[in-house]
Amino acid sequence: MSFKLFELMLWAAGYTVVLSAISIVIGLTIGLCVCAAKLARSRALSIPATVFISFFRGVPLLVQLLLIYNLLPAIGISVPSVVAAVIGLSLCTAAYQAENLRGGFNSVPKGLLEAADMVGLSPWQQLKRIRAPIALRLTLPALVNEAILILKASSLISVVGVIELTRMAQNLSASTYRPLLFYSVAGGLYLVICWTVAGGGALAERLTRTSRA
């Protein structure tokens, strides 16, 4: 494989990382909102959140991507396929992240909030100082896991024509007749990316853990 072709693979890997990262950040933001809606006492908020979560967790990502890709032009919104892809990935991961976050928030022991109540922290201060930090620590491993899943699932966006790592390997295999080489390189690059994320997650867990023992 010439350096030129390897460079193309690296560039595609970078694109995969960037698109996944954007989707994870947008997904986490939407996920937080959906989680808040789902935890809300008002049913006008919690029911749509439940519907959102069950749809995006219940329909295969591939189908979601094709739906969004075809739906947007049908309702008169024309966007580049990469935008449709990022929307699809973001919404899908948002549903999972909302559920992870909800699990974290619900696992914060009630007594810790009663203690906060007793020293006069307002509900907002309790959320900011006690609930969210504890819930996020509890959710961190699941969020890292979700990030890795999205990185790998991003290979599906090749179906809407985005040339990310998998699609690049496909294209180069077809033009050089060396599929084994290019798919091996793609696999290796995915591994390196995922190891890095997992390592970053482990580091974050170590930095936020509450004991030095």
């Binding site: 022991p109 810790l112 009663e114 203690a115 504890i134």
Partner: peptide, 11 residues
Amino acid sequence: MVFQQFNLWPH
């Protein structure tokens, strides 16, 4: 108030 389960904030 002091609770049976201490309820210290772990973080």
